[in-house]
Nucleic acid binder design. Structure first.
Lengths: 346, 346
DNA sequence: CTGTTAGCGCGTTCAT
DNA sequence: ATGAACGCGCTAACAG
């Protein structure tokens, strides 16, 4: 910058003013400076700017992994919104490990980010309430942080799962199993609760939660389920990953859907409708979840306020009825959700 | 930091030395400083460090979008390797637009990143050879940059596609269509070339490239193809996105695979094996592509060398034979690729 | 082994 | 309308 100033025959300050656009610079000198900038191919150092100003124009995004299309789409939305606001995104994956997440979050803090969007790993988000995190805006995605001042964007997991399971019940199924990922995940708990509500409402006994850790394990679990003393006639998958595990397992075990067993699940995905049979799923507004989280964050950043109690935005889901449940025609039913809620379990 | 120094009764320099671990500090003072750091909950400002040192410990990752599982998995690999090296990742999406990519790349440069990994949008990567980019390490992913000094990590697109199409020919198909995304994409051109080679080798006439811009358009195109004067008996999809478009279209048009038409494609994906029929695909080592690119970049950064001619690493693909081609048993064939090549078209 | 000086590139403050 | 000086938080280079 000093070089530019020298070449233009002005002080560094004039150059700085011109770039920030704010203050008064005479047309003539402005033009001289512009020329000098082009001649030297001057690029301002954003690092130095960030050091000086209270804003680094950077946010952090921490999520478990990117190979889940749900998370990937959220990340895409966040990136898009950030670019619109002139912000950069520091991304990092936690692999669902709370300690990794915590270390990465601390690192982001030292990089002076203006805010962070987190899909928190289970079991330990206490660190977010420690002193270091007091001066950073945080929005949580897909899962809330316990008793926190942070905004969260969720979907109505419980109501969605309840409706999906109720639909299976409407088909006359009495024994329905719920399969999910790690039970410690917020979304899995909420959806399992929805499942239990649906079962209880129909005076049916809820089955135990079936935890699928891998495709291989799922084969074993499904086999055990089907050859047990109370074989289910329908299955509900807790998310799109579980559903894919399940499809593998049913394929391996040569169990026909929906003749031998009916199927439904939470979270739609790209080719769920071209499978044979097409899958009945509870669809969540994936892109909007990420978009809303980013918008909330930038709103907080713009206002600079740190509320003591965060808002919980709950987006609505819809039941997409296709064939795997046993239906012969397709339809969509939407479940409204309060846009701001304070329930502890959605 | 000044506070810590004051509390410990030492100079800032001693604190700095302790943190960087390099120089000599006596045990006693070290302990005093440590205590002061803990008491004040001191966190070093990485921004200031980056400003001072020649390394910002940050790399940039620019890719078209994240909702493609191929790109998402590459991004995951890059993020993982970066964390291993103690680096942070600034991510941004270009939406396949060269101008967006260029602007974002320039912004990254001003943020003083140590290196960048790019999946370049088609048609315009000249900007990478301009003066500003002289002092940054760049590795290209999935697609090369023309005549450049940058390393690239690719897969053997042409050989893979050739083998996939040859397999369809072995089934007796005479008219095979190639469907892909934008024709301007490097991978699509290379794969289409492989298709043409396979056809020519069998003395068959290659069909024109069919460009699928959306699921809807694909329905129209496939319909036109099937009702045209030379309806194909087999289709080859240029990538996983095209394959999904195609599956939608075939489903909509109620065309049965593989009875009415045989199917194969480039790029495996998660549930390609549970579809009915299971899809025959050319599989590329997705995670390894991202991992290798990141490793190459960190190697360059570590050595600090800017070679005049970049290496082109070409990873091998394999043909995963399942059912959509008409086969009744499954198998895998791997195609070796030279690990370093200088061909302009892979 | 430790402290002092200087400067990374920029923007704010005050003076002109 | 413009410039000089100072400081953001840190570290390299030189003293002591």
């Amino acid at each position: 910058m000093a070089d530019v100033a020298k070449l233009a025959g002005v002080g560094k300050m004039t150059v700085s003013r011109l770039l920030s656009g704010s203050a008064n610079v005479s047309k003539e000198t402005a033009e001289r400076v512009q020329r000098a900038i082009r001649m030297l191919n001057y690029q301002p150092n954003e690092l130095a700017r960030s050091l000086r100003s209270p804003h680094s124009k950077t946010i952090a995004l921490i999520l478990p992994y990117l190979y889940d299309p749900f998370f990937a789409t959220c990340a895409h939305a966040v990136s898009t919104v950030a670019t619109q606001h002139g912000y950069s995104v520091l991304i990092t994956t936690s692999d669902e490990k709370a300690d990794v997440e915590q270390k990465q979050a601390a690192l982001m803090l030292r990089r002076r980010i203006d805010g962070m969007i987190i899909i928190p790993a289970p079991n330990d988000d206490d660190y977010l309430r420690s002193k270091e995190f007091e001066n950073v805006h945080i929005v949580t995605l897909d899962r809330p942080a316990a008793q926190s001042r942070f905004d969260s964007v969720l979907v109505n997991n419980r109501a969605g799962a309840r409706a999906g399971v109720a639909h299976l019940i409407d088909h006359g199924h009495k024994v329905i199993a719920f399969l999910g990922l790690a039970k410690s995940l917020f979304t899995m708990q909420a959806r399992y609760n929805g499942y239990r509500e649906a079962m209880s409402s129909a005076s049916l006994a809820p089955e135990n939660y079936v935890e699928c850790r891998s495709p291989e394990e799922t084969v074993t679990l499904v086999h055990a389920l089907m050859t047990g003393k109370k074989p289910p006639s329908a299955l509900f998958a807790g998310n799109n990953l579980t559903m894919r595990y399940l499809l593998h397992a049913l394929n391996t075990l040569r169990i026909d859907v929906p003749r031998q067993i009916a199927l439904a699940g939470f979270d739609d995905f790209d080719i769920a409708d071209v499978l044979q049979p097409a899958l009945t799923v509870v669809r969540q507004p994936v892109y909007q979840v990420g978009e809303m989280a980013a918008n909330l964050l930038f709103q907080r950043i713009a206002r600079g306020e740190y509320p003591t109690k965060g808002h919980r935005v709950v987006l609505s889901t819809e039941l997409v009825v296709r064939r795997s449940c046993g239906c012969h025609s397709e339809s969509i039913v939407t479940f409204a959700a309060k846009s701001v809620a304070d329930t502890t379990d959605e």
